[in-house]
């Protein structure tokens, strides 16, 4: 009678979710590295006031555009400010910007996509065309327009970036919802007495969310760059506040005098974007039960 039990099931001891989590961390070096990097970044952001060797806004006109020295590890910028200190003070601004934009995109986009996909019919037609219309705008132009309407500043700039990202997520979630909605297990759940809200929340959302996780990590990286672009256009972080995008934009002006100025903010953005992406891939693998036992 227990033919299945003997043949199909490898014997397993106490395998709780926590154990699975740590096993995943140990087996996935990429995840550990990216998580470690992001933790260090968050630590630096929180304790920026303590770690930074100089003030990020104090100018020193006697030391302009210096090469790295022992007193200024990453050199100084065009106003004589310490680049390392600005990089450290830029971390919280850049992280805040990226997370704010993506949070807004998730809060707006995911429920909208679920609703559109689940309800379908004329609502789907209407909303999908609306989303198409939004996506036909160049994203930065749309973000600039929304920022203009909301008012200039980092928070408003990133709210508008989130608003621009939201239709992208909504479209992905809608497509996934359409697939998952017709799955037999959704019918089965209904057949066992589950209500509509329960079905959307417990069965459709978890099955539709995987591509969103990857997209979100990509968006974190794009949001970093969007912050840079908007700060470059002086719609984002207002001088003399530091942000990586703003530093990059500023260094760009002096690319012929001091090309090394680009490296610090550039690598910070690159590494952070890379870490977000790597983490997203690892989460995807960890969340997918069919990929777990490799």
């Amino acid at each position: 009678m227990s033919v299945d039990g003997v043949l199909g099931v490898p014997p397993r001891t106490t395998a709780t979710r926590r154990v699975n989590f740590w096993r995943w961390v140990r087996s996935d070096l990429r995840a550990v590295l990216s998580l470690g990097y992001l933790f260090i970044l968050i630590f630096v952001s929180v304790f920026a006031w303590k770690i930074a060797p100089y003030s990020p806004i104090e100018q020193n006109v006697t030391e302009l555009l210096m090469e790295p020295t022992w007193s200024h590890w990453l050199g100084t910028d065009d106003l004589g400010r310490d680049v390392l200190s600005r990089l450290i003070w830029g971390a919280p601004n850049s992280l805040y910007a990226a997370f704010l934009a993506v949070t807004v995109a998730i809060v707006l986009g995911v429920p909208l996509g679920l609703l559109i996909g689940f309800l379908g019919g004329w609502f789907d037609e209407l909303m999908s065309r609306f989303i198409d219309a939004l996506l036909s705008f160049p994203p930065i132009v749309l973000a600039i327009a929304v920022t203009g309407a909301l008012g200039i500043g980092l928070t408003n700039a990133m709210l508008s970036v989130g608003f621009v990202f939201a239709p992208v997520l909504a479209r992905i979630v809608r497509a996934q919802t359409l697939v998952v909605k017709s799955a037999l297990y959704v019918d089965a759940a209904r057949g066992f007495g589950a209500g509509t809200g329960h079905i959307i929340w417990r069965h459709i959302l978890p099955n539709a969310i995987q591509p969103v996780i990857v997209q979100v990590t990509l968006m974190l990286a794009i949001a970093l760059l969007a912050e840079a672009s908007l700060s470059f256009l002086s719609l984002g972080v207002q001088p003399p506040q530091a942000s990586w995008g703003g530093m990059l934009a500023r260094a760009y002006n002096y690319i012929e005098l001091a090309p090394a100025q680009m490296y610090a903010p550039g690598f910070a953005i690159l590494l952070t974007a890379l870490a977000f992406n790597a983490l997203g891939e690892s989460i995807l693998v960890a969340l997918d039960p069919t990929m777990k036992r490799r």
Binding site: Y185, A188, G193
Partner: peptide
């Protein structure tokens, strides 16, 4: 549904939620 009338579906491979 589920309480007074139970239902078993045709394809056990897809009637259980994979996540």
């Amino acid at each position: 549904r589920g309480r007074h009338i139970g239902m078993i579906f045709q394809e056990p491979m897809s009637a259980l939620d994979p996540v």
